[in-house]
Amino acid sequence: MAEKKKHIPKNQHFVPQFFQRFFSYENDGKTIGMFNTQLDRFINQVPISSQLSSDYFYGRDGNLENWLSKHESDSAPIFREMWEKEKLPINQSPDHFKMLHFMVVLDLRNPIHFKILNNFEKKLPKTKSKISEGNVSGNMVSGLKEHQTDQGKLNSLKSAEQIVSDLLNLEYKLIKNTTSNPFIISDNPIILYNQFFEKRNWKFCSQRDFGLKGFQMFLPLNDSYMLAVYDSNIYKLGTKKQKIVAIDDKNSIDQLNLLQFLNSETTINFNHKASQYYIETLYQKSKKFKKANDTSINVHKMNFPKGYDNHTAQMIEMGVSDLNIKLKIQKLNFISKSSAVKLKSIDNQYRKNVKYKGHVHVVYKLVPIIEK
């Protein structure tokens, strides 16, 4: 007897439904508040089943959808315990790895990630060379196309485990929101920030690669809790012994919520504690800042060392716009020794022993060209 084929859902969520339920309206587990920034439309309750999803976004064969389903089942209890019991995974434990793995996958699985690749694919053939007539080589386009296929998406998400090994030495704590302004999420809820690079005005490549010095991740868990992961060689959050850091400053909460608008594509979500006035006020504030995830390609001419007479190469830097709002959060401060950290080169911008470099930006050196 032939094995019955498993039904593959048409409506596939890129922000897991279990995660959206943490923000459900009056904790009903079924509906959530929604604000559409394109339509300027506020709705108190919409079905979670219809939110933050797209038809067959992860394919029709079920391979990636099934992989994500198991990944979510493994992750959900860990994140629920954070806000229900104020319990964080033990450092270097399997749950610590799963926590970080979920955060990386949440970033890599988002439609914005694949939109960025698609924009690079379109822009690259039109990019002018710095050292020869015409445009740069288009031999990288096939690789960008491959990452956008169903198999490419699956391979990309499976590679997230490699990135996690670079994050295990980062500090992580819970921010407890004790104000009346609730945390909110968006269609791209994982915030990648770097106050250190922002302060240094470091412009070369993206400020948000997972392996960079000063790297930070902020993930709201419900209206009252946010998970913060950060480079403890650069920052301190609360006291050394605190794992739960209470914040009673509304401006700090508003800044963290503002990042959701700037990191989003079109949709903001929230529970019953967020008023229409509050959401619309944040939206108006967000218009003063540049949104994240806009693509750019820069070509740099490079001269070879002595012994390579008349040889030059070009380096193609493909990057995205960062979140930069001069973020300042109560109880999150630079440690004193961070001021002595040097930034002199591309390699120097990464933390020690980082293996995976180039998540948000992609840098290529082309074959040397002899100038005529």
Rank of each mutant, 00 (worst) to 15 (best):
L256C: 04
I253Y: 07
A246R: 08
F196K: 08
G211C: 10
Q255E: 15
Q255L: 09
M217W: 09
L258Y: 02
D254N: 14
F218L: 14
G238M: 01
K199H: 14
P220A: 07
K203P: 07
A246N: 10
Q255V: 07
S224R: 10
A228I: 02
D248M: 06
G238T: 00
K250T: 14
I234W: 00
N233W: 01
I244F: 02
M226N: 11
I247F: 00
D223Y: 04
Y225F: 08
K203L: 14
D248R: 12
L237W: 00
L259H: 09
S252R: 02
K236T: 08
E198A: 13
S224G: 05
S232Q: 10
K240P: 05
L259D: 11
K241F: 02
Y230P: 07
K213I: 15
R208H: 12
F210K: 12
N233D: 08
F204E: 12
K243N: 08
N222C: 05
K250A: 12
V229W: 01
D209L: 05
Q207G: 13
T239W: 02
D231C: 02
L227E: 02
D249F: 05
S224Y: 03
I234H: 01
D223G: 06
K240H: 08
S206A: 15
Q242N: 02
K203H: 12
A228V: 04
K199L: 15
Q242H: 02
L237Q: 00
S232H: 09
L219C: 08
S252V: 01
I247A: 02
N201K: 15
L237M: 00
R208A: 15
P220S: 07
S252F: 01
K243T: 07
E198I: 09
T239G: 04
L259W: 08
F204K: 12
D223T: 06
Q255M: 12
N251E: 15
M226I: 06
M226K: 08
M226L: 15
N257V: 06
Q216G: 10
I244M: 04
L212N: 13
M217N: 13
L256Y: 02
I244C: 03
K213F: 11
L221A: 08
N257Y: 05
K250L: 12
A246T: 08
S224A: 06
N222P: 08
K243H: 05
T239M: 01
A228W: 03
L227R: 01
L227W: 01
Q255W: 06
A246L: 03
K213T: 15
F215T: 14
N251Y: 10
I253T: 11
Y225P: 06
K203T: 13
Y230S: 04
S252E: 02
M217G: 12
L219H: 03
A228N: 05
L212D: 13
C205R: 14
F210R: 11
K236Y: 05
K199S: 15
F204M: 13
D223H: 09
D209F: 03
I244T: 06
N201I: 11
L258N: 06
L259Y: 09
K240G: 04
